Simulated scan of single mutants.
Amino acid sequence: MTDVALILVTGAAGGLGRNTANALADDGHDVVVHVRNPARLTREDDTARWKGVVLGDLAQRDDIHGVARQAAEFGRFDAVIHNAGVLHSSDETTVNTVAPYLLTALMDKPAKLIYLSSSMHRAGSTDLGPLTAGTASYSDTKLWVTTLALAFASRWEGTSSHAVDPGWVPTRMGGAGASDDLTAGHLTQAWLATHDDVTPSTGGYWYHQRTQTPHPASQDEEFQARLIHALEKHTGVPLD
C-alpha cells in the first residue's frame, strides 16, 4: 500500500499501541488512536501527529459500542489494528476477545484486519465455558482472538486478516524484564497494515515479519464456527 492509509489502532495510550500509531503517523499515514483514559495523553505532540482520537473503556460493553460509533465518523478504515489488551485482570475476556469481536462486527469492514496475539495462546483452552463466565485465562483469550483472526481471513471479499505475536516486550504489560526487542514489537503490525505484498496475503500468524504455526485449534473450522456462535450469543450482535 503506497497511498496514505487511514488506520485505527486500539489501546494506543502507551506501549506497543502508541509505538505502532506513531510509527504509522511518522510514515505519513492518517492514524486514529483509541485510548481508554485521555489523561494519559499528556505530551505536547500526543495528538498533533494523529488524525483523531476515540475514547472508551473496552472492558465496558456500552463503551465498545461507543468506540465503534466514534470510529465510524472517520469513514471506512484501510486497516484496523486490534492492539488493546490486558493481563492479570478480571477484564481479560472482554478486552482481549469480546471487544475485538464486537468492533469487527459493528464497524465497516476495512481492507486489513490485524489482531494482537501472544505466544501464550498456545496454552489456551478450547473450552468456551469461561468465555461467558468471564473466567478465562489470558492464554484462553489470546487463543480465541487468534482463532477469530484466522476465521476472518476469507470471510469478507476485499478484507484480509492476520494475527501477530509481538513478542515479550518491555512495556508496562510486559515488564522491565521482557526479553524481546521493543521496536520489533510493533514493526510487523505496522508493515501488515500498509503493505499489500505479503505472503500469505491473509490468514497468517506472524512473529517479527515471519509466519509461524499457531495452535491447531485456531485453524480448525469447527472451532472457529463454535467460537463465533458463542460470541454472537454472548453479545447479542451477529457477525454479518
Rank of each mutant, 00 (worst) to 15 (best):
G14H: 10
G15R: 02
L16G: 02
L16K: 04
G17R: 10
G17M: 04
R18Y: 05
R18A: 05
T20H: 03
T20S: 11
A21L: 11
N22F: 09
A23V: 06
A25N: 12
D26V: 14
D27R: 15
G28Q: 10
H29M: 10
D30T: 10
D30R: 15
V31T: 07
V31S: 07
V31R: 01
V31L: 05
V32A: 05
V32W: 00
V32T: 03
V32P: 00
V33F: 01
H34S: 09
H34Y: 03
H34K: 10
H34Q: 14
V35L: 08
N37R: 14
N37C: 06
N37E: 14
P38E: 14
P38Q: 15
A39L: 12
A39I: 09
A39K: 15
R40H: 06
L41G: 05
T42M: 06
R43W: 09
E44S: 15
D45A: 14
D46Y: 02
D46A: 08
D46W: 06
D46K: 02
T47A: 09
T47L: 15
R49N: 11
W50A: 07
K51Y: 00
G52V: 13
G52H: 08
V53P: 02
V54H: 06
V54A: 07
V54Q: 03
V54L: 11
L55K: 07
L55P: 01
G56T: 07
L58W: 03
A59L: 02
Q60W: 03
Q60L: 14
R61E: 11
D62A: 15
D62F: 02
D63P: 08
D63M: 03
I64V: 15
I64N: 01
I64G: 00
H65V: 15
H65G: 06
G66K: 09
G66L: 11
G66A: 05
A68Y: 01
A68E: 09
A68W: 02
R69S: 07
R69L: 11
R69C: 05
R69D: 12
Q70T: 08
A71W: 00
A72R: 12
A72T: 13
A72M: 05
E73P: 00
F74E: 01
F74W: 04
G75L: 13
G75V: 14
R76W: 03
R76F: 00
D78M: 14
D78E: 08
I81L: 08
I81E: 05
H82E: 07
H82L: 13
N83Q: 09
A84K: 11
A84P: 10
G85L: 13
V86G: 03
V86F: 01
V86T: 14
L87I: 14
H88R: 10
H88S: 07
H88L: 15
S89V: 12
S89G: 08
E92A: 13
E92Y: 00
E92F: 07
T93E: 08
T93F: 04
T93Y: 04
T94D: 02
V95M: 11
N96K: 01
N96E: 07
N96C: 10
V98R: 11
A99M: 13
A99H: 08
P100D: 06
P100M: 05
P100C: 04
P100I: 13
L102Q: 09
L102G: 02
L103I: 13
